[in-house]
Each structure stands twice: as C-alpha cells, then as structure tokens.
C-alpha cells in the first residue's frame, strides 16, 4: 500500500500543524491532554483510513472516471431551480432577538481594532 511509504510522511500531523489547523478552524487549543488526543486520533485516521485513498492500485481506475458530487445522477429528475427572489422573513425581530447580542435589528459583535494601512 502506497500509504505506508515514506513520501506520505508529510501528510501526518505534528504539534505545529495542529496549531495551524486550530487557527484556521477558529478553535483554540484547550489542554495538552486534548491536543495529544487530537494528534493521536487524527494521525490514526490518516494512517488507517485516509491514506487508503492514495492506494496506487486505484490509479488507473481513477484516471478514467470523473469525480461526482452526488452518487445519484439528479440531472432531469429535479424540478427547475426556483427563482432567486428574496422574500422578507415574517418575523425578523424573532431572529435578531435570538442572537447572543443584538440592537435595533442588528447583530452586535466586538469591534476589531483599527489598523492603518502602511
């Protein structure tokens, strides 16, 4: 299996890569214990599962087939897409009131510190 070969070593996750992923995902590191669990499980998944997608035995079959976004071919089976018309929600106040913070029909979030362009 190609997945066990050295060229895929870069696929695996170390502490530095985890930090990068956490930043992209807007998830802060919680504890060393949780981070270690995440690294272990993510690498297990990569090693046991994900890497099988790279199995070179699949190469010739995959070359001759188009990627598909759905298993079922939906062409001609679905109704035409509805018109792109925006309709007002009947009770917008109920939506904004559900927000953690809102005022005058707007969602309120912390303001980012202004940084002047150099």
């Amino acid at each position: 299996m190609a997945g066990n070969d050295a060229p895929h070593d870069a696929l695996f996750i170390n502490e530095e890569r985890l930090k990068q992923l956490q930043k992209w995902a807007a998830i802060a590191p919680q504890s060393n214990e949780e981070d270690l669990y995440l690294i272990r499980e993510l690498n297990n998944q990569l090693n046991e599962m994900v890497i099988k997608v790279l199995d070179p035995a699949l190469d010739s079959s995959l070359e001759n087939i188009m990627p598909t976004h759905y298993g079922v071919n939906l062409n001609g089976r679905c109704a035409s897409m509805r018109d792109d018309i925006v309709e007002p929600w009947p009770d917008p106040e109920a939506l904004t009131e559900m927000a953690p913070r809102s005022r005058d029909g707007y969602f309120v979030v912390p303001v980012n510190k202004h940084e002047s362009l150099k």
Binding site: L54, I65, P67, T68
Partner: peptide
C-alpha cells in the same frame, strides 16, 4: 487538513472519483 493547499487535489478530488467508482 485534507482540504488545504497541497492536499485538496491529492485527497478530496481523488475521494470524489472513488465515490464515482
């Protein structure tokens, strides 16, 4: 991780082809 630059074509698109297979 698997959708980031360098892996998206290698893994995600390949997985979509695998789904077709």
């Amino acid at each position: 991780h698997v959708s980031s630059a360098g892996y998206a074509d290698q893994l995600y698109e390949r997985a979509l082809r695998l789904r077709a297979l």
